[in-house]
Design a binder for these strands. Structure first.
Lengths: 313, 313
DNA sequence: CTGAAAGCGCTTACAG
DNA sequence: CTGAAAGCGCTTACAG
């Protein structure tokens, strides 16, 4: 009684043996192909069931054209900003016949192993396991620093930031506070510079600062790090009995759709995430085709923010 | 001059030939293994670069243990409800060593081909390509109907719904409107039954109905189809100058975190999506191990909603 | 440090 | 209607 090792997963050969047929007859049954008698098909399918047979993706992929797989590394899906980008990428990728394997930062290593190309949008730099995945096309969205060989979708913030600043100044703002990550990100720097260019020196506090931390500076405007932070600030101001935009004006960054539903509706720097997704996928295709000669300059696309004035300013 | 077909992607053999070495030496170079001279490694890597060589996931997967792949089919990621579930599944799956390939409904066919198991959470039933993926473990979350052989995570709504109804009735509600998908879903039916059990017959309108459509019924409460719809309704009521909860009380369904930030804060039926995700992954594991004998009853987990009373009721 | 051989699990012609 | 053979692209022992 030396049957097949039960610890080992059943293969097509096990099924063939159990059904008393050849391997290709199993293939025919499983794929519902022509040229097989109903009786044989039933017998094979029963054997497959009994053995809990799962066809191997790898064996199959090796021998017939399979969908390309795009690795999508995306910061916290819980933030609608990332979720919306992911949603668009999913739709676009499906349209182009790609599968998408997703991960949030931390499980990046596996991602590179299972993907034919990677798009990363996390706020931190992405370093693929270099030699194990040679020539892996990587596109980073709004990366904190450039990485030679990677494609980039860059965000143009200056124009919209200047517009937001003009908007605030035109409404009498003189004591703005900019909330930014310690160490300062490009979004925070853009606001600080735009204010200074207009002769106003903003106070910069850490992103984590709440209204209580900021209040001593007697601000008449606060630039939140992103919309989600802006929502929280709006709530805290309401609780503290501070009128928005009457006493304090608030601006967010990201352009979340739900900003329409908070009170007051949050003004924000929005970006077209569908365009971002489209640009990223274009770059992936471009990088794949690259013969890796003349890689003098890395491919780049630029997408611009726009200022959306709602009720909070 | 009959070089390799340029249309065909380069394989390990092409690289070996170009570098003048054997296949396994290419493997050594690419995986940064010991037992290869620096000079050889450099030569191989250069050849890989020149030929734009991408190792085949399939060839590799066939021969060494690879991460399992979970297919996650999820309705519109743009809804934070689905996004939060996806986020949890991603985290949990990564912790268990699984990759996750995601899709939104429509590209389901490819999903089944590239995954070792599927979790579906879409609001519609999921039908995998049956014979081509025999024994594919499938778990559906809150499916509209049962499918023999599929695992299910079911939502228990009755308790929380009764609680919400008691809450409303206790505040004087007598003319509630329930917004539901035409054809009625379990969430809508649960509300209707709970109201009737208390001697109140609610008016049922289609989910798409706006405040203008509902107003003629002079409702003193509206049960929205989900939180997102509830946000919209809240906005429309504010514009129409209707006081919430003073004149009309509003309840949502889903328990979105952002419900904390709209005005008034939206009362809702919440569900612990982390628990839902955990249950689904447990079922996947259970189904994979199943020897497909004694499949008398399909595995099921039940997760209960709870009523979260905020300011809109 | 390097290579010849075997084999992973499947499908695609081809023969009968 | 069914099966024997070849081959997809890779890695893992094993030999030198």
């Amino acid at each position: 009684m030396s049957g097949p090792d039960p610890a080992r997963a059943a293969t097509i050969v096990d099924v063939a043996r159990a059904a008393g047929v050849s391997r290709q007859t199993v293939t025919r049954a499983v794929h519902d192909m022509a040229g097989i008698s109903p009786a044989t098909r039933a017998r094979v399918l029963a054997a497959a069931r009994d053995l809990n047979y799962h066809p191997s993706r790898f064996g199959r992929g090796l021998v017939k054209p399979a969908a390309r797989t795009l690795g999508l590394l995306v910061g916290d899906l819980t933030n609608p900003y990332y979720a919306e980008l992911a949603s668009t990428v999913l739709r676009l990728a499906a349209g182009r016949g790609w599968n998408v394997v997703m991960a949030e930062p931390g499980s990046a290593a596996d991602l590179a192993g299972g993907a034919d190309a990677v798009v990363a949008f996390t706020g931190v730099a992405f370093d693929p396991p270099s030699p194990a995945a040679p020539n892996l096309p990587v596109v980073e969205i709004d990366p904190p620093r450039t990485h030679p060989g990677h494609g980039r979708v860059e965000f143009e913030r200056e124009g919209a930031t200047r517009e937001a600043v003009r908007h605030l100044l035109g409404r009498g703002v003189r004591r703005p506070v900019v909330l930014d990550l310690l160490g300062s990100t490009s979004r925070g720097r853009a606001f600080v510079e735009a204010f200074r260019a207009q002769g106003v020196d903003p106070f910069v506090a850490d992103r984590g600062a709440g209204w209580d931390d900021v209040r001593p500076h007697a601000p008449d405007a606060v630039v939140a790090f992103n919309d989600l932070d802006g929502f929280r600030l709006l709530r805290d101001l309401a609780r503290a009995g501070v009128a928005v935009p009457g006493q304090v004006r608030v601006v967010g960054v990201d352009g979340l759709g739900v900003g329409e539903f908070v009170t007051p509706r949050l003004s924000t720097l929005a970006i077209d995430l569908a365009e971002v997704a489209r640009s990223a996928l274009d770059l992936v295709v471009e990088l794949r085709g690259d013969r890796s000669t003349d890689r003098g300059t890395d491919p780049v696309r630029v997408v611009a923010h726009r200022f959306v004035a709602r009720d909070s300013t």
